[in-house]
Amino acid sequence: MTDEHSYEALMARCLGRVSTEVDKREGSILYDALAPACAELAVLYTELETMLDRAWPDTAAGADLDKKAAERSLVRAPASSAVREGRFTGADGGAFDVPIGTRFSGGAVNFTVTERREAGVFRLTAETPGSAGNTWFGTLFPIDYVEGLAGAELGEVLVPGDDAEDDESLRARYFGSFESQAFGGNRADYREKVLSLPGVGGVKIFRTPEGGGTVGLTLVDSLWGVPSDDLVAAVQAAIDPVSGQGDGAGLAPIGHTVTVRPAVGKTIDVALT
């Protein structure tokens, strides 16, 4: 609230409209009559400023920002569940296959077995959406009884879980939508579509890396690391599932042959005393 709309300022303005022949001192009948009205006016001005803040994208938050973003056909990215690799062993120490749907607990998050990768190695999906599913590594404890199971370990993050998009990220996308128009397979279109996929943190787009009609996408995951093969495959399936055909079966336009690759990690040795 600005100074001119404060209770003290409003009282001074109202009392200034009254003749000096009338008693305007604090405690007088006139003063006591004006005070409640000025207090209510000060509250009203505060609420008006709040309403204005809620109406503009640079100050709106939460549901109000969602409504402003919807004007640009933008939707806040929801939280996504982490996909992890689980390894299971039997009493003999060898690989052990657990039933699909079996539930395990790791840290504060529960995981469900969703897909077999190879003997004793499975994909597990966090039941709690968000980044919490990325943090636990080590022993898993079975929630469901599995006869013959002797050991369970939670390992690699295959697809990182992401928290729901925060206000500042959505606000940046809102203002960014005025600077470039996503349409028909241009860079903005690819960037918008790829970054909306779960687990993707960044993408670099290459024009015709393998000749006319080809597009190259290089990814980092949402943990800003080298993405797993599973994440790269998931993005490839979403963008251009029939790579080499350019038939528009995914999000890429007809005529665009898209190849998705992971960023290459680089080791940097740091020595200090």
Rank of each mutant, 00 (worst) to 15 (best):
L41F: 10
R261F: 02
W136S: 04
A233F: 08
H256Q: 04
A152K: 01
D162E: 11
L74D: 02
A61M: 13
F206I: 08
L149F: 07
F183V: 15
A82D: 14
A271M: 09
G246S: 07
R207T: 11
L219Q: 03
V242W: 04
Q181R: 15
T208Q: 15
L74Q: 03
F137A: 12
S228L: 05
N186T: 13
V159F: 00
K266Q: 15
G62M: 03
F137Q: 11
V109I: 15
F141D: 12
T257W: 00
G138M: 05
A69L: 06
A9W: 01
E49N: 09
P253Y: 01
A9K: 02
L41H: 10
G16R: 09
G133L: 07
R116K: 15
T273C: 05
D163R: 08
R103M: 15
Y174C: 05
G161Q: 04
E192L: 14
D66T: 05
A233E: 11
V146F: 07
T50K: 12
G107K: 01
A55N: 07
L154E: 02
S73G: 06
G201L: 08
R76E: 13
A37P: 00
C14F: 04
K24Q: 13
G250W: 02
A119G: 03
A82L: 02
G106P: 00
E49R: 09
K193R: 15
P241E: 06
E156T: 14
D221E: 08
C14H: 04
E210I: 07
Y7C: 00
P227Q: 13
R25D: 12
T46Q: 14
A69S: 10
I268M: 05
A79D: 11
I29F: 15
F137L: 12
D144S: 03
V264M: 04
V235H: 01
R72C: 09
T214E: 09
L197S: 05
G216A: 02
D162Q: 06
Y7F: 15
T2E: 10
D97F: 06
E71Q: 10
S177F: 01
P227K: 08
S169R: 13
Y145D: 11
D162W: 03
W56T: 13
F206K: 11
L10R: 06
V200P: 02
G120D: 12
L217I: 09
A61V: 13
D3S: 13
R191K: 09
E147G: 04
R123E: 11
A108E: 13
D64T: 08
D230G: 01
G185A: 09
D240V: 12
Y174L: 12
E4K: 09
R103G: 10
D167G: 01
P253H: 06
G176M: 09
K193L: 12
D92Q: 13
S6R: 13
A61C: 08
R17D: 04
P262S: 10
A42S: 11
Y190L: 10
P253I: 10
A77M: 14
P160C: 05
T89Y: 14
G155L: 07
Y174V: 05
W224L: 08
W56K: 09
Y190P: 00
N110G: 12
N186A: 14
G93S: 08
A126M: 02
Q245E: 10
E4G: 03
E26F: 03
P227A: 05
T102N: 06
A234H: 00
